[in-house]
Design a binder for these strands. Sequence first.
DNA 1: AAATTTAACATACAGACTGTATGTATGTAA
DNA 2: TTACATACATACAGTCTGTATGTTAAATTT
Lengths: 196, 196
Amino acid sequence: MKVSKAQQRQETIAKLLEIAREHFSTQGYAHAATEDMVKEAGLTRGALYHHFGNKEGLFRAVLESVQKEIAEQVETEAAKSQDPWEQLLNGCRAFVTSAVEHRNRRILLIDGPSVLGWEAWRKMDEEHSMQLLQAQLQSMAEQGYLAAVPIEALTHLLSGAMNEAALWIAQMPDQAHSLEQMTRAMTLMLEGYRVK
Amino acid sequence: MKVSKAQQRQETIAKLLEIAREHFSTQGYAHAATEDMVKEAGLTRGALYHHFGNKEGLFRAVLESVQKEIAEQVETEAAKSQDPWEQLLNGCRAFVTSAVEHRNRRILLIDGPSVLGWEAWRKMDEEHSMQLLQAQLQSMAEQGYLAAVPIEALTHLLSGAMNEAALWIAQMPDQAHSLEQMTRAMTLMLEGYRVK
DNA sequence: AAATTTAACATACAGACTGTATGTATGTAA
DNA sequence: TTACATACATACAGTCTGTATGTTAAATTT
């Protein structure tokens, strides 16, 4: 049976991304050995270095797919409402819910900044979910929904709050309850920016 | 000349902590080589492993001293006012100001959670600056200054917000200006929790 | 259709780094 | 002063990443 190179390439990359995501999530970047990953994929490290350049390149590609998935979730949930305030809260809750998941959490929130450096990580973040948040805030400000506040600073403040929220919820025994509590705290936090 | 063992021990540990802090801050945990650090201290890796067990142990000790310094700053600044709201805001600003510093930032906010794991990092955090924040919030809630909100969730939300705030400010060209903007955003954020 | 090129790997090896086992000298306590 | 513990130094083994080179099959060119 004959397999096209394009197809082979795509399949190999997809397989490595999936396996690496699992390894990075459970072991962390530093303790995930490239040899173990490629072995699980039925390949050798040659394939990895061919497609991703180095271990960090593989991690970056994995993080990119994590970001895309989360941004999609956030966008979908936010779009379910017409009211800007509800859109904002829906999006925030969707982000936290996604970020809590095992296959996203460590890669996105723990190892991401450490492995790529905060600036590179932040740049990636800006091109995905943070972008959505800032656009929403910007639009709300222009429509007069928000009190006078520097948008960029606010975006980072909220983003940081939600990142930690996800990490906190993730390790609590009753996650549903913790999410409720956190939603309450987040709702009040956002209230501070409602124009009076 | 004869040096007591206790004194020798103390000096060696102090020297290694200081040098390691600089190396971890500039190179990051992963790229800081133990050999380089001990060489700079005029020692060998034997000394490091004797006193700290392993590289992670050294990092943990460094982080501990970072935490202590920051908590001290926060406490000092907060104590400068009698008004609980002002204490809270002073403390928050002091935390951000300290966390921004080069010798604290990466160790505390970037590599800390990645190297020690989030749970261990959080536990250390709780024993230092986060403890102060939660105590302040708790006391404010009991005195009727705060709206009804789960304190633990709130503590993490605010802590996360400030962590990201520090990282954002750190990489902005005009840090003084950015700190002002962030203070404005933080002030409004806290307003959300003021009892109405 | 044959020849050539190129993409997708596999293999082998070098270098860096951590951790451990062991040796040694000096201070300390009985 | 002798026995022991502490504070290291030294040597070595194991792991892991990255790179250089080889190989095979598909794609492209002639």
